[in-house]
């Protein structure tokens, strides 16, 4: 596609992340890396609806919540193995997204962002108040990790879990790439350019938008499931509005539409606030200012800046 070096960078990053446990000893960084990889999965999904179709959806964390509670509750109530519930979580989430997206996506235009925001709040309210099912605000503890001391892999070890999330994030990135390259991806980008035109030539645009929305939700569901089994603790707070905004940030900061964008953006939204801890009380202010400046001065995200630089250096050489 348009930017070859992105694949090279991605491959290098994957190798680096796999070797990460060998390079750094501090479990702190390993922990952040796992979180960032989980966010990569969610952000790749968000990129389908936001980056390609051009629709802002503010419910990605809510869908992560459905995936996380889905895998946890399936495991608790039906005694299913962890692998199976993790595999089911994206499908459960997709069902919810189908039910939510069918009515709201037939409505065209900018209301969509606000409607999805309402969905996130609804998910939050239900997770908080349906205490007999979700344990409410107190949350669920002791969610099992896949594998065990007797299994092939022991995922209680952080380095092993890092590999698992890396593989999953890689696979989902690949899947996102396939979708983006397909006819569906082309149609989605056409919708972003001019939705009326797409409708005029007889393509039912809402079906494609619905596909992007449901696929995005499935990505989020998987991310939520991995999160639940990694942290072993979930409560509604983790899946609130602020986290959905992080997913949007990850896509735009990394670079909308580009395959490497969500990956870079996910690391950005996990690591930058952590890095800013030294700023203490001014953390929020600095983070906010950084976002505004980044959006003004690099509207196409980090990938956009990188590809501009690359193009310029190529031109220089020729």
């Amino acid at each position: 596609m348009q930017f070859r070096p992105a694949y090279l960078a991605l491959a290098a990053a994957a190798v680096g992340l796999a070797l990460l446990p060998q390079i750094i000893v501090a479990k702190y960084y390993l922990h952040l890396s796992i979180l960032a990889l989980i966010w990569t999965i969610a952000a790749q999904g968000q990129n389908l609806i936001q980056g390609h179709a051009g629709y802002v959806s503010i419910v990605q964390a809510g869908f992560m919540g459905i995936g996380a509670y889905g895998t946890t509750l399936l495991g608790m109530h039906f005694a299913l193995p962890v692998w199976l519930t993790m595999l089911l979580a994206p499908f459960v989430t997709a069902l919810f997204a189908l039910a939510a997206g069918y009515p709201s996506l037939r409505v065209k235009g900018r209301c969509f962002a606000i409607v999805t925001l309402a969905y996130n709040l609804v998910i939050f309210i239900v997770l908080t108040n349906w205490t007999s099912l979700t344990h409410g605000e107190a949350g669920i503890t002791g969610i099992p990790k896949p594998g065990g001391p007797d299994g092939w892999f022991d995922f209680r070890d952080r380095a092993t879990f890092n590999c698992l999330t890396l593989i999953l994030a890689g696979a989902m990135t690949g899947l996102a790439w396939l979708i983006a390259r397909s006819r569906i991806g082309q149609t989605l980008r056409a919708i972003r350019q001019n939705e009326d035109l797409v409708g005029a030539i007889g393509i039912p645009a809402w079906k494609y938008k619905l596909f992007a929305f449901v696929a995005a939700a499935a990505f989020a569901g998987l991310a939520g499931a991995v999160y639940a089994h990694y942290q072993s603790f979930i409560n509604p707070e983790v899946f609130g509005l602020a986290q959905s905004l992080d997913a949007i940030l990850a896509v735009i900061v990394g670079g909308s539409g580009a395959i490497a964008g969500p990956f870079i953006g996910a690391f950005f939204v996990v690591f930058l606030p952590e890095y800013l801890r030294f700023a203490d009380a001014f953390r929020l202010i600095i983070y906010g200012l950084a976002l505004i400046l980044a959006t003004i001065f690099m509207p196409r995200g980090i990938v956009g800046v990188a590809s501009d630089l690359w193009a310029r250096s190529r031109r220089g050489r020729e």
Partner: peptide
């Protein structure tokens, strides 16, 4: 909860702290 996990990981791994206090919130 996520931020608390991050903060405590940082305290233990990076700041090499062994005694951790605070925690006003149940989650």
């Amino acid at each position: 909860p996520t931020e608390a996990t991050n903060a405590v990981r940082k305290l233990i791994d990076f700041d090499e702290v062994k005694y951790i206090l605070g925690f006003c919130c149940s989650g």
